[in-house]
Amino acid sequence: MPTITTDDGVKLYCEDTGAGTPIVFVHEFAGDSRSWEPQVRHFSRRWRCITYNARGYPPSDVPQDAERYSQERVREDLRCVLEGLGLADAHIVGLSMGAFATLHFGMRYCAQGAAPRARSLTLAGCGTGAHPALYAKFQQEARALADSIEREGMAHFAATYGHGPARVQLRDKDPRGFAEFVRQLAGHSATGSAHTMRGYQARRPCLYDLTDEMARIAVPVLVMTGDEDEPCLEPSLLIKRTLPTAGLAMLPRSGHPINLEEPALFNRLLEDFLHQVESGRSTVRDAASRPSIWGPGGKP
Rank of each mutant, 00 (worst) to 15 (best):
S35N: 09
L265N: 11
S292E: 10
T160F: 14
E28C: 08
R45Y: 04
Y13A: 14
F105D: 00
A142P: 01
A288G: 15
Y52A: 03
L237C: 12
D32F: 01
L222Q: 04
A179Q: 14
A246M: 09
R41A: 15
S120F: 06
I293E: 06
D8I: 12
H27K: 03
F43R: 00
H188G: 10
V26Q: 02
R45T: 14
I92W: 07
A264R: 10
V10P: 01
A190K: 09
C49A: 14
Q169K: 12
F29R: 04
Y200E: 11
R176S: 13
A264M: 06
M197Y: 04
D8V: 08
M154K: 00
M107F: 11
A111L: 07
S279Y: 15
A88N: 14
A114N: 12
K137N: 14
C232W: 02
R183G: 10
V182L: 12
R108A: 13
A166W: 01
L123I: 10
Q139A: 05
S236Q: 09
R75K: 14
G129S: 09
Q39E: 06
S193C: 15
L185S: 02
Q39C: 07
V81F: 04
V219A: 06
V26P: 00
H163D: 13
E67I: 04
D227N: 12
C232S: 14
T242R: 01
